[in-house]
Write a protein that binds this DNA or RNA. Structure first.
Length: 560
RNA sequence: UAGCCCGUGGUGUAAUUGGCAACACGAUGGAUUCUGGUUCCAUUGUUCUAGGUUCGAGUCCUAGCGGGCUAACCA
C-alpha cells in the first residue's frame, strides 16, 4: 500500500487535467509550496506539500519552494532551515528555491506602476482610522481623505517612505479599488506599511514592507505558477489577487482553494503551537507529542506513512475533521512492513526458572520480521532468570486471560513453555518475583506430547538485558475537537496530562544497544519504537513509542 | 446583519459529469497465527430538508436548514 495504489483524481487534479486538455498553459504545470518562515511545519503543511509536489511529479511539472517572508518581525532563518529540512525529509525536492523578499525591488516597481495608473495612493490614516473608515458588512466604507491625492504627490511620498523619512505607521500605500465592495479585501487594501525592522534576509535595506496580499499573487505570477493552491480562507482574497495581476497585465496564475487539514485531539494553529513551545508545555517544536513534522520524525513516524496518510485523506473544499487514528494507522501499516522485531520488557517482573541450571545460558534464534523474510534472524540469550511484563501475570486471572498465573503455562516467545508455581510478595503486598519451571522439550515452540498453551509472552534475559528509558506518548488533547473551546475557557486546560509517560529501568534485549534513531523497531506485543534522536546515548538509552500495537485484549477489558 | 464557499455510512473520501451509491479506516462477529500483532472472511447505509425538471437526480433548478471564511498596516 502506498501513494500510488489508488490513483486519485481530486477536484484540484481534475482542474489541471481539464486545463491540459484545453491547452490553457500548453500542458505546463507549475506549482509551489509557499510557507511563511515563522514556525515549524506541521502535518497540515504536509498535506499541502504532498499535493503541490505530488501534482508536479504526476503531471511532469515543477514545484518551487518559496518563502513568503514579508513580515520581518515574525520571521527567522531558524524556521527557514527547519522548513527546508522537513520538506526534504518528507521526500520532496524543489525545482527552484525562492524568497518573496527577493522580489521586493520588483514589487516596488510594480507598486510605482499602479500609482502611475492611478490605482494606488499613499494614505496617512492610522491603523485605527483605516479600520474605522473601512466600515463593516452592513456599513458602507468611507473614502480616505488622501484617496484623490495626485499621482505626483503619491510618487513623491512613496519614494520618501522608502527612503525612511517617516516613522512606523505614519503612511501606507493602498490600492484604490472600491470602498463599498461587499468583499472587505477590496476596500482599498494596504500594499505597503512602514516598519523600521531588520529582515532576516534583506537586513536593513528596507523600511517599507509589502503586505502578503500584495506580494503573494505577483510572486506566483513572476514564477509562472499555473496552479496556485492555497487554503479556503483565501477564497475571498482571490478577487484581489486577480485585480492586481490584471492591472499589472502580467501572467495570471489560477488560484485553487482547498480545505486545510484538521485532526482530532490535535491543534494545528501555528500561534498556539508556538505558545506550547514558548510556555514550556512541551519540549520544543520537535517534542514527539507535537503535530510538527520534526515531532513526528522524532517520534518515529516514517515519511512514507505521512505521505500515505495525505493520500488517504484526499483533497476537498469541505471542512472536515480527520480522526488522528487514521494517521496512527498509516504509521503502523508501514512500520509493520519494515520494522524489525525485538523483545523489550517495559515494566519488568523477575522470573526465576528453578529447573534451569544456575550460571548457564543459551542462544535462541528469533525471526527479525515475519513480514519480510529477507530481514533474517538474530540470536537472543536465554537463562535462568528472565524478565517478563508485569501485566502478563495475574495472581487471580479471569478465564479469558491467556497469560501467566499460578499453575498456568505459557510459551516464551522463541524459547520454551513456562509454568508458574509460586510467586513472592514484598511487605507492601506487591509481587516481586515469580518461581517457575520450563520444559526443555518445548524448544521448538511446541510440546512433544501435543499439549497446547493459550498465550505467548515476550521476555528478556536478566543477565544480558540492557537498561533503557522508554517514553510513551498519548494524544496531546483529551478533547476531540481541541480547536473548539467554550467561551471564556483556556484551550490549554484541555491538554492531556497523560500525553507522556516516562518509564525507566526497562529491560531490552542486547541487540537494541546498536542502531540509530532512524531505525524503527517493533517491540513484540507492545508497539513501534525508535531511539530518541536527541536524548539517547550509548550509555543511557532512550526510546520513544511511535505507536502502540492494536490491542484487542485491552479493548475488551475497557468495555467491561 | 452582507458577500463568498461547503453539506454523501461512525470518520475520511469516490461515483466515468444525469444511469445499479462505491473505496479506505474504524466498529462488531468469525477464521488463521510461537506477537491478544499481521492476514483472511462476514456484518454495519433515509446522499441535510422540501419542492421542481427528467423515463431516470448524490449530480441540474428553486427555497429552506446547517456549517465554514471574511470587517490586521498578520499570513
Amino acid at each position: 500500500m502506498n501513494e500510488s495504489d489508488t490513483p486519485r483524481v481530486d477536484f484540484v487534479r481534475q482542474i489541471i487535467v481539464d486545463d491540459n486538455e484545453s491547452g490553457k498553459h500548453d500542458g505546463r504545470v507549475q506549482t509551489r509550496f509557499p510557507p511563511e518562515p515563522n514556525g515549524y511545519l506541521h502535518i497540515g503543511h504536509a498535506k499541502a506539500i504532498c499535493l503541490n509536489f505530488g501534482i508536479a511529479k504526476e503531471f511532469d511539472g515543477k514545484c518551487n519552494l518559496r518563502f513568503d517572508d514579508t513580515n520581518p518581525e515574525k520571521e527567522d532563518v531558524e524556521y527557514v532551515e527547519s522548513i527546508k529540512e522537513d520538506v526534504r525529509w518528507l521526500g520532496f525536492t524543489w525545482d527552484n528555491l525562492h524568497f518573496a523578499s527577493d522580489y521586493f525591488e520588483k514589487l516596488y516597481e510594480m507598486a510605482v506602476q499602479l500609482i502611475e495608473r492611478g490605482d494606488a495612493y499613499v494614505c496617512s490614516l492610522s491603523a485605527e482610522e483605516t479600520r474605522e473608515y473601512r466600515g463593516g458588512w452592513n456599513k458602507e466604507g468611507r473614502d480616505s481623505p488622501d484617496r484623490e491625492r495626485s499621482v505626483e504627490d503619491n510618487l513623491d511620498l512613496f519614494a520618501r517612505m522608502r527612503k525612511g523619512e517617516f516613522s512606523d505607521g505614519e503612511y501606507t500605500l493602498r490600492a484604490k479599488i472600491d470602498m463599498n465592495s461587499p468583499n472587505m479585501n477590496l476596500r482599498d487594501p494596504a500594499m505597503y506599511r512602514i516598519r523600521h525592522a531588520h529582515h532576516h534576509r534583506t537586513g536593513d535595506q528596507w523600511c517599507i514592507y509589502p503586505t502578503y496580499d500584495w506580494t503573494h499573487g505577483q510572486s506566483d505570477s513572476l514564477e509562472g505558477i499555473t496552479h496556485s493552491i492555497c487554503t479556503l480562507e483565501f477564497e475571498n482574497h482571490r478577487p484581489l489577487y486577480d485585480w492586481y495581476v490584471d492591472r499589472l497585465q502580467i501572467f495570471h496564475p489560477q488560484q485553487i482553494e482547498m480545505a486545510k487539514l484538521k485532526l482530532t485531539h490535535t491543534i494545528m494553529s501555528k500561534r498556539r503551537l508556538r505558545e506550547l513551545v514558548e510556555g514550556g508545555f512541551v519540549n520544543g517544536w520537535d517534542d514527539p507529542r507535537m503535530p510538527t513534522l520534526s515531532g513526528y520524525r522524532r517520534r518515529g513516524y516514517t515519511p512514507e506513512s505521512i505521505r500515505n496518510f495525505c493520500h488517504r485523506i484526499g483533497v476537498t473544499k469541505f471542512n472536515s475533521q480527520t480522526d488522528v487514528g487514521l494517521l496512527e494507522q498509516s504509521a503502523r501499516e508501514h512500520l509493520n512492513a519494515i520494522a524489525e522485531r525485538r523483545m523489550a520488557v517495559l515494566q519488568p517482573l523477575k522470573v526465576v526458572i528453578e529447573n534451569y541450571p544456575e550460571g548457564e545460558s543459551e542462544i535462541r534464534a528469533a525471526i527479525n520480521n515475519p513480514e519480510d523474510e529477507s530481514a533474517g534472524t538474530r540470536e537472543i540469550p536465554f537463562g535462568r532468570e528472565i524478565y517478563i511484563e508485569r501485566n502478563d501475570f495475574m495472581e487471580d486471572p479471569p478465564k479469558k486471560f491467556f497469560r501467566l498465573g499460578p499453575g498456568r503455562e505459557v510459551r516464551l516467545r522463541y524459547a520454551f513453555f513456562l509454568k508458574c508455581h509460586d510467586f513472592v510478595k514484598d511487605e507492601s503486598g506487591e509481587i516481586v518475583e515469580l518461581r517457575c519451571t520450563y520444559d526443555p522439550e518445548t524448544a521448538g515452540g511446541k510440546a512433544p506430547d501435543g499439549r497446547k498453551v493459550k498465550g505467548t509472552i515476550h521476555w528478556v534475559s536478566a543477565a544480558h538485558a540492557v537498561d533503557a528509558e522508554v517514553r510513551l506518548y498519548d494524544r496531546m488533547f483529551e478533547k476531540e475537537d481541541a480547536s473548539e473551546v467554550p467561551e471564556g475557557e483556556d484551550w490549554k486546560d484541555y491538554l492531556n496530562s497523560k500525553s507522556i509517560e516516562v518509564l525507566s529501568g526497562c529491560k531490552l534485549e542486547p541487540s537494541l544497544q546498536d542502531g540509530d534513531s532512524n531505525t524503527p523497531y517493533q517491540f513484540e506485543r507492545l508497539g513501534y519504537f525508535c531511539k530518541d534522536n536527541k536524548d539517547s546515548t550509548p550509555g543511557s538509552l532512550v526510546f520513544n513509542r511511535t505507536a502502540a500495537l492494536r490491542d484487542s485484549w485491552a479493548k475488551q477489558q475497557k468495555k467491561k
